[in-house]
């Protein structure tokens, strides 16, 4: 996993709420047996029409927006547990997603892949959407050590929460497996007395 410290970038705003992982990557594109290449089909049915042509009115197809931060409406990533959703966002080039609410499994999947979910207040989210509407070049600065998200050139900033262990993992590029493997003898000891009925 790649390390994450600070990210400053323009953003792609996607105001829809309750975006489920079937939208992020539809099931028919889950047939790969590797982790790579899912970015091509990110938001597939919103980006392409049934002929496979780009839909011009979808924000990801608007060349005047760019950046590695996706800003979206609340309850992002609900529905299916498919980690392919996090892989697709990462593969497309996103390194952080900002929303006022994330679905649990998606949040975990994102953190396990170096994609930072930043949960902000509804008001802060509104402010971002407002400012980006006025100026597409608005940037966001996301600092992991201070757990702060800010809009450079303005006074807008906010602290966000992240589990301290997950934070350490992201800062160092560690994943959970290394940690769990280091606990193997303890796990074996637990099994000695654990009874499964």
């Amino acid at each position: 996993m790649e390390k994450f410290k600070t990210l400053t970038s323009t953003v792609i705003p996607l105001a829809n709420e309750d975006i489920d992982t079937d939208q992020i990557i539809p099931a028919r594109f889950l047939k790969s047996t590797t982790r790579e290449g899912f970015g091509n089909n990110l938001f597939r049915d919103w980006r392409y029409d049934s002929q496979g042509d780009l839909k011009e009115d979808f924000i990801l197809n608007d060349p005047s927006y760019s950046g590695s931060i996706l800003v979206t409406g609340k309850n992002f990533g609900c529905g299916s547990s498919r980690e392919h959703a996090a892989w697709a966002l990462y593969d497309f080039g996103f390194r952080a997603v900002v929303s006022s609410y994330f679905a649990d499994i998606f949040k975990g999947n994102a953190l396990n892949n170096g994609l930072l979910p930043v949960q902000v207040s509804d008001a802060f989210l509104e402010t971002i959407f407002e400012l980006v509407k006025q100026d597409k070049n608005t940037t966001l600065k996301i600092e992991l050590i201070d757990q702060q998200i800010s809009i450079p050139g303005t006074n807008h900033k906010e602290k966000y929460n992240i589990n301290a262990y997950k934070k350490t993992c992201l800062l160092n590029g560690y994943d959970d497996i290394d940690y769990l493997i280091s606990k193997k003898s303890q796990i074996e000891q637990f099994e000695q007395t654990h009874k499964e009925f």
Binding site: N112, D175, D176
Partner: peptide
């Protein structure tokens, strides 16, 4: 998620 599938397989 799949990363966790791997964790459970491993530990």
């Amino acid at each position: 998620g799949t990363s966790q599938v791997e964790q459970v397989m491993a530990t």
